[in-house]
Nucleic acid binder design. Structure first.
Lengths: 129, 129
DNA sequence: CGGCATCCGCAAGGATACTG
DNA sequence: CAGTATCCTTGCGGATGCCG
């Protein structure tokens, strides 16, 4: 698999107006990525997700889920019971996206030692400025 | 490779205070991802990069490059000539990160048809509201 | 050419209150 | 529980000007 090759696809994320850039931002955005990652482990209710994605506000989680649902990456299953119960899960497409995203996340987590070391070298070289 | 498994690493991006979340945001941020993607194709000068990453401002590109350099993902090679010449390229670590990021990007680009279709279904179902 | 310093508008996003 | 609505602050990010 040659990742170097610039494929001749109709959607090029490097072009300003391309809709793929918007979707990429939903996926890699501040909360989008963490939400997809959390949902990769299973189906969760709204407040369960909130606890899993540490730091997300109610508003942002709601907004993020709507965007991902609209892009066809997340499925929303609502039961009209009382009290209401709503479950979120990944669609097949969402699973494939999340898998690739987690590959990146786990890789980063595993190399944080190198990253932190690089930072120290950088900060030391430029001291305080 | 089981991506489901929650590894017992010292760095967990799902926790609020973890430094890995910051680095992930540099990588997946609005311009970070596109910059890494562009640099995957080779070494480039500042203004070459600006042209490749369509829409990025001078300030944001500069800021992005600094963050990535500090995290040890990008190497900056400056020649003290006149006029100055500065080349940017990925470090080995940066290459591995970019590769995983591009896997995600190219996958998304290839599935944009499905995404766009899902959006239409979503918007139609909820019509105007 | 390759930047940094500054100003500033605006939208992302947090806190809170309220609804079904 | 599962959200929506509203207010308000922060800081992202664009524009401009200047420097080595």
């Amino acid at each position: 698999m040659d990742l170097t090759e610039t494929q001749d696809l109709p959607f090029d994320v490097f072009s300003k107006g391309c809709p793929s850039r918007g979707t990429l931002e939903h996926v890699t955005g501040r909360w989008g990525g963490l939400t997809l990652g959390a949902l990769y482990e299973g189906s969760f209710r709204f407040n369960e997700l909130r606890r899993r994605v540490d730091g997300v506000s109610e508003k942002m989680l709601s907004q993020t889920l709507h965007a991902l649902e609209r892009d066809g990456l997340v499925h929303r299953e609502a039961q009209p019971t009382n009290p209401p119960r709503v479950d979120y899960e990944l669609t097949p497409l969402g699973r494939e996206v999340a898998q690739r995203l987690l590959a990146l996340i786990h890789f980063m987590e595993g190399r944080m030692g190198e990253v932190l070391a690089a930072r120290e070298r950088y900060d030391e070289a430029r001291g305080s400025r």
